[in-house]
Design a binder for these strands. Sequence first.
DNA 1: TAGATTTATTGACAAATGTCAAGAGGAACT
DNA 2: AGTTCCTCTTGACATTTGTCAATAAATCTA
Lengths: 197, 197
Amino acid sequence: MQNTYTLLAALIQILNNIQPINNELERSLIEEFKVEEIGKGKVILHEKDICKNLWFLCDGLLRSYHNIGDKEITSRIMYTGHIVISPGSFFTQTPATESIETLADCAVAKLSFNDLQDIYKRFPEFNYHTRLITEQYFYKQEQRLYMLRKHDAAAKYNFFLENYADYLKDIPQKYIASFLNIAPETLSRTRSKLGKK
Amino acid sequence: MQNTYTLLAALIQILNNIQPINNELERSLIEEFKVEEIGKGKVILHEKDICKNLWFLCDGLLRSYHNIGDKEITSRIMYTGHIVISPGSFFTQTPATESIETLADCAVAKLSFNDLQDIYKRFPEFNYHTRLITEQYFYKQEQRLYMLRKHDAAAKYNFFLENYADYLKDIPQKYIASFLNIAPETLSRTRSKLGKK
DNA sequence: TAGATTTATTGACAAATGTCAAGAGGAACT
DNA sequence: AGTTCCTCTTGACATTTGTCAATAAATCTA
């Protein structure tokens, strides 16, 4: 496994792009983030548990999902470079209404809610970075809202292709289908109509 | 019209609930926010314009909408107490992909992007407040994502009733329909099945 | 590699919703 | 009050998607 510094380089880069962070903050982040490798198919957050960690996905693929009746709905798909939390649960430290699982072998860097609050206390300027990051995720989430209002299954699948093409082969179609809010059979038919793109 | 202080009291309250703000910041906010009254049916942000303002909706009702082909889709409904922006446009100061219009006579307090940046510079701790507010809106947006994945029109309409019942009579049904991503005719039929709630 | 298990595909059909059209009901304006 | 315009409702029908079932394909496991 690579060292923490190397694995966190992408995260440090994201932060520096927002506004250069000072060495002390960088050192604290590298110190507080705990890197771990997680095999494919592991649930890193279970529904009803409190999301006590924020993960930076150094490498890999994740999905969040929740159950409605007997159906499982994939709500988000997260890939390398993403900051991963269950928003409602992490922000308010209340039980999660969704689970998060790995769709591939992953390397993640984990920061606990409490350690993050410490960092906010010691480096108030860090609020600026996370405000901008939250704004970015907010905007991306809005894109998904637009997607779900698209008229037909083909338009929704095209959204998926535009945004997640690189991960197409690694995500079981049934998950893609529920992410797009269509039946797996409909996705299968849509794909064959579009020529298996 | 009431004075700026009275109209902004609710906003100041929201901020103080997050973390008490000092007098100087409060004074600056009251000074920088410009209150105005806007009649029903006015477009306060036009698609393709840059969203240069953040509005605090002191009193009234707004919706955001965008066009897809010949269809108009209502993306958000915002009522008294909401902080209103077109997220993608305001955060990045790029052209908006949606418009915002009043659905009733409104009183708003307006703060320009530039004035907000000044406030961030003078009061870095304000990033903390807006980070938490952004997190809250992020979470509410996620609720709308869940709604759009609900199985049928009745479930979507129930979501609307649970979240916007107070504004039911003030929002034309065709807007509610597109917000829920169903045809106006379907909403009409769904309502009559549910007994006109 | 063989067998078991899960996932994807395809067909037939059902159900929900969308579309089009006509008319009723309200709101706004003169 | 009457006219006009827009929204809502209702019906008939078309279309899309969902559901169920059978089979094929792929993946996992021993």
